[in-house]
Simulated scan of single mutants.
Amino acid sequence: MVVLAHVFFGSVVTALAVARKRNDPASTITTLQKAIGDLKITVDSLAPIEGDVITLLANLRHRMEQELPHLSSI
């Protein structure tokens, strides 16, 4: 599973680089950046936490920190 997540991560990073080089629309860039964030959370979730919910939530908050202000306006 970890290998598969890393393959997807590499694919999205490559797609983002190509999209930036081609000057794709901002919405495309934003979508790819969010996908990278989602994949980071996925990879983090695969790490052994051994029942430490506080560490798990802290890692999730760290990954989502930039998104949290945007969510409050929804």
Rank of each mutant, 00 (worst) to 15 (best):
M64S: 04
S11G: 12
T55M: 12
T30R: 13
M1P: 09
K21I: 06
N59K: 10
V18K: 08
F9E: 02
E67G: 05
I36D: 00
T30H: 13
V43L: 01
L32C: 03
T31Q: 10
I54S: 10
V53I: 14
A47H: 09
G51M: 08
K34Y: 14
E65F: 10
A26K: 15
T14M: 08
T28S: 07
F9V: 06
N59V: 08
V18H: 06
I29Q: 01
V13M: 03
S45Y: 04
A19P: 02
G10C: 08
H62S: 08
R20D: 05
N23D: 15
L60R: 11
A5E: 03
A35K: 04
L57M: 13
F8D: 07
R22C: 13
L32A: 06
I36W: 03
V43E: 00
T14D: 02
L4Y: 10
S11I: 15
V12A: 02
V12T: 00
S45R: 09
V2A: 11
E67N: 12
K34D: 14
I41K: 05
Q33T: 15
M64P: 08
E67H: 12
V7E: 15
D44K: 00
L4I: 12
H70N: 14
I41F: 02
D52N: 14
T14K: 03
E67Q: 14
L68G: 04
L57D: 14
L57T: 09
E65P: 05
V12F: 02
T31W: 13
R22N: 13
H70M: 15
F8M: 12
K40L: 01
V2P: 03
G51A: 10
H70C: 11
V2E: 13
A17H: 05
L32S: 01
